[in-house]
Amino acid sequence: MKIAIASGKGGTGKTTISAALAFSVSCPVRLLDCDVEEPNSHFFIQPKIQRKEKVYSLVPTVDAEKCTGCGECGRVCQFSAIISLGSKTMVFPELCHSCGGCARICPTGAITEVRKEIGTIVIGAHGEIEFVSGRMDVGQAMSPPIIRAVKQHERTDGLTILDCPPGTSCPFITAVKGCDAALLVTEPTPFGLHDLKLAVDTVRELNIPFGVVVNRSIAKENRIAHYCREEGISLLLQIPEDRRVAEAYSRGKTLTAVLPEMRAKLVALVKDITEIAREA
């Protein structure tokens, strides 16, 4: 079972819930921190690091001897990462999405793809909890290849929890795609609702079964509950607003450390979302 812990809005509690889930379940579990631009799950899991792996992406280089300046590479590139000025062909590696189209279309074989280091994968464990985190190098702009590298470490059995990046663009989609289900974490604010709607539209488009978790809930009857009811979305859990949770978070402690009664609810949450995934 692979569960994406995702949200449209940032700062709603994805990492809080991911880490708390990892500490609550009794089955074999691996937490993948897919928020490679700002990974922070390790603050809560505090894993012992076993090894690190470099992540590379492929970018084109042009052999000026073989290049005829036909410009086919520039026409196929959707991102202006390679252009031909007649005699001269220029590459802007930071714009390249590593699709390989330019190398494939080049009629004279002047383009070869070379590796560019873009990040690191960290692999470790805290007791029974297995942990993998991706870290994008400073100055890089393309996180999906690193997210895909992290996802190579999904478990084939037991539970894989993917702490996803916020938003609904490429990093979010790369992380959520292929998961059995998604838990969309939000907060009962207008902004939380607005971005939840975007996330719902996206996971529906990706055909991923999902449920909603409300964090920092002051009253059970709130705008998220109302929206979920209207849309026929399963609202699986509401976590109460509690200053102690924020204080614990700021010290790298999990939700269950201050609200031990949440443990049973988190176990039930996994059961519920598994059920939703099975029914879909």
Binding site: S80, I83, F92, L95
Partner: peptide, 12 residues
């Protein structure tokens, strides 16, 4: 209206 690479394409 390009998402990225506007300067490069304009130069081209």
């Amino acid at each position: 209206n390009a998402a990225q690479g506007a300067g490069i394409q304009a130069a081209l």
